[in-house]
Design a protein around this nucleic acid. Structure first.
Lengths: 192, 192
DNA sequence: AACCGATTGTGATTTTGGTCACAGATTTTC
DNA sequence: GAAAATCTGTGACCAAAATCACAATCGGTT
């Protein structure tokens, strides 16, 4: 009845807030399965945000063009929720891009359906709240890394906290994510 | 019936989610009015987080001791919610400190009562969710500043986005907040 | 297999911002 | 109101990382 992907999604949701069968069905019913080839955009700067994504497989990057440079602000791997919050909440054209960094399969939940879920049951509000708590904690940590750590420590941070990124994401993108020049990160890695 | 402080609090809450009279009363009933003198700690590293604060007047800083240096990670001014999310959600001893940077008056909402509110009505869940959306957007912006802006641009960011900090917060603390040496920020300011 | 583009490595050079040191200035404290 | 502590300004120096330039490697495509 449930596919394997459905079950993985449910497990992930359960980490934040446990949904009963009806609620989960409601959630699943408004999720749309999609595939993106490498280099395809899930969201392009200038467009309106169309919701959030739950990655089944692949990798997605969030980046912003800042005087000609692609500055990566986040990466999303499988079983994670890819999103661009600002344009999602403000309903303004996005300044940022979501792009598939490899062939990717995912569930898409549109903004419209997400808002309907929030109306439907407090369980979804709680889920949203807890997910946001999690995301904010993570973002606080990134800020700490950028504010307080030296280049080598930033690399060590990735090794410890997000080791999967090292395999899957090009070093060039990781460098921008860590606020470093590509060359600096390359030299740090050469030392290991 | 409502004090002026109550009304200001309600207005601030309304920006995120409008509460009806009963709900607002429930909220107010579990808020405790408190005063802190300058340099008093609202939360000390090593202790358990005891909730969130709504500032009526004064200023509060959030900092972490990182090899001997006080690294300020946020500042809270009047009509803002001061918090340390990580220890609040994880219920672990805090690694961070909340300190009054001037004489401060505030409402305190304990973690325990906050959780009760979440159980009581979906309005509080939604309020929490929307507040977190706001906080996460703000934090994303800070990360962007630290990742992508040069020292002078960081100062300009403060001038534009949080001008009140420039008057009320010592330059030394602002420097750590922006990930700069105190001397660098001093020289930038001298140029104006 | 050969090609083309994207990605990475590495040396040389430059520059920015950090560090150190100390002097004023401003606030607290008793 | 004097002393102490905290905070800020400023010069000299240094070091770390950015930039520049180019070669090498990897990956995907036809």
């Amino acid at each position: 009845m449930y596919s394997e992907n459905d079950i993985i999604l449910r497990k992930t949701l359960d980490k934040f807030n446990v949904l009963n069968d009806t609620e989960f069905s409601d959630f699943l019913n408004v999720c749309e399965y999609k595939e993106f080839a490498k280099k395809q955009y899930l969201l392009k700067a200038g467009n309106y945000n169309h919701g959030i994504y739950f990655l089944i497989s692949g990798a997605v990057g969030l980046f912003e063009l800042i005087d000609g440079k692609e500055m990566y602000q986040n990466f999303f791997l499988e079983n994670e929720f890819a999103n661009e919050l600002k344009s999602l909440t403000a309903q303004t054209p996005s300044t940022k891009n979501l792009i598939a960094l490899s062939d990717t399969t995912l569930f898409h939940l549109s903004r419209k359906e997400l808002l309907k879920l929030y109306e439907k049951s407090v369980s979804f509000e709680r889920l949203g709240r807890k997910l946001l708590e999690h995301l904010l904690n993570a973002q606080n940590e990134i800020s700490y890394v950028l504010q307080s750590l030296k280049p080598e420590e930033r690399y060590a941070y990735l090794e410890n906290k997000r080791p999967n990124l090292l395999n899957t994401i090009p070093l060039t993108y990781l460098a921008s994510y860590l606020g470093l020049a590509r060359e600096t990160l390359s030299r740090i890695r050469a030392k290991r």
